[in-house]
């Protein structure tokens, strides 16, 4: 029997033949990064490789690193291993890593969503023998509605608030979700304010060529009435700070896949939950897996054990890798209360 192309090491997912890691959680000499969320891209490695579009976000998040970038579909050869990256549809520059060695193909998905959101390059299914997948929303209760439906819900909520002179505060993850939301907002309703943790990432998106509507810092809007008609994008961490106090009368909401469950919305006692995720839902995970034609599936994070058990019952050869992905509060990988991974 041949050795596996990728194995689980204490530092992370390791490719023996190529002597590199994918999204390692400890410092290693060579790291391929699927995307810039903090549980997948960590500091301290000697060399990094990522998709070209992820470059500026990675510099922003990891500081002055040694980074090589390649385009989607571009192939590099390294110690007899062919490595290429393909869009994962998750955030700017998010990539699946395709590794070919001695006629065998493995794909590491990173985080992905299958619906085209119109601002990130769409997920592309890649044929492979072994597919290493996430399962953040790997339960059948997670079933997303089309983006256009959620878009209408959000704009209607904003419109209703604006008509009653109530600022709309929309909490969302700063990298990826905030920019996706920006692209969905109906700017005729009022001005859009971006929190200081979100605006620098908007800038990077714009520099990378993604058209986003104009955003303001809260201090730029001095007219009280304008502020009442505004929609404010803020990271979840801002919900517990004084930053919010400046908005008198407001309605708040949170945009996340976790909002599918009422209890999760209640835990934060926010007015509205919009079910919008940058991860695949249950059906999305299953369709993505089927389209790879892989026989062997390895689940890295989310409802890993449950999802792997289900895949086994469906005839796949499925197992789990116990990784450190999803251990983070500032992106969609973890529920608000840290407690569902079983």
């Amino acid at each position: 029997m041949r050795a596996d192309i990728i194995e689980l090491r204490p530092e992370g997912l390791y490719c023996t033949a190529g002597d590199f890691y994918i999204d390692p959680w400890q410092p290693v000499p060579m790291a391929i990064i699927t995307h810039a969320h903090s549980d997948h891209a960590r500091r301290g490695c000697e060399k990094y490789l990522s998709n070209t579009l992820a470059k500026n976000v990675l510099y922003k998040r990891l500081g002055n690193i040694t980074l090589q970038t390649i385009d989607y579909g571009e192939i590099i050869r390294h110690r007899g291993v062919r490595v290429s990256l393909y869009p994962a549809g998750h955030i700017l520059g998010s990539a699946q890593v395709k590794i070919e060695y001695r006629g065998e193909t493995w794909v590491v998905s990173g985080d992905y969503k299958v619906e085209n959101d119109n601002i990130h390059q769409s997920f592309e299914p890649i044929q492979c023998d072994t597919f290493i997948t996430e399962s953040t929303f790997g339960l059948p209760i997670y079933r997303w509605q089309p983006q256009s439906v959620i878009q209408a819900q959000i704009n209607n909520w904003w419109k209703d608030n604006a008509s009653q002179n109530r600022t709309s505060i929309l909490f969302c993850y700063a990298l990826g979700k905030a920019q996706r939301l920006l692209s969905l907002l109906d700017c005729s309703i009022g001005p859009i304010v971006a929190h200081g943790a979100i605006e620098p990432i908007n800038q990077i998106y714009r520099e990378t060529g993604v058209a986003l509507p104009q955003t303001y810092m809260v201090t730029q809007i001095t007219d009280k009435v304008a502020l009442e008609k505004a929609l404010v994008l803020a990271p979840p961490s801002a919900s517990r700070t004084n930053w919010l106090k400046r908005f008198g009368h407001f309605s708040d909401a949170f945009a996340s896949g976790w909002m599918q469950i009422r209890g999760r919305r209640r835990i934060k006692s926010i007015d509205r939950g919009f079910v919008l995720s940058d991860h695949a839902d249950w059906a999305g995970l299953l369709s993505a897996i089927r389209e790879t034609n892989a026989d062997r599936i390895i689940v890295t994070h989310g409802y890993s054990e449950i999802f792997a058990r289900y895949l086994n019952e469906q005839g796949f050869d499925a197992q789990t890798f116990s990784t450190k992905f999803g251990e983070n509060h500032e992106n969609d990988d973890s529920p608000l209360d840290h407690s569902i991974e079983t």
Binding site: L139, P140, I141, R143, Q260, I261, R262, G263, Y303, I306, R309, Y310, E313, I340
Partner: peptide, 22 residues
């Protein structure tokens, strides 16, 4: 499968809501 229903129920915490979601 019924075990998957039970896992879903445990995650949602409310029977009516779990069924409505499935």
């Amino acid at each position: 499968p019924s075990w998957l229903f039970e896992e879903s129920y445990e995650s949602v915490g409310d029977l009516a809501e779990t069924i409505a979601l499935l």
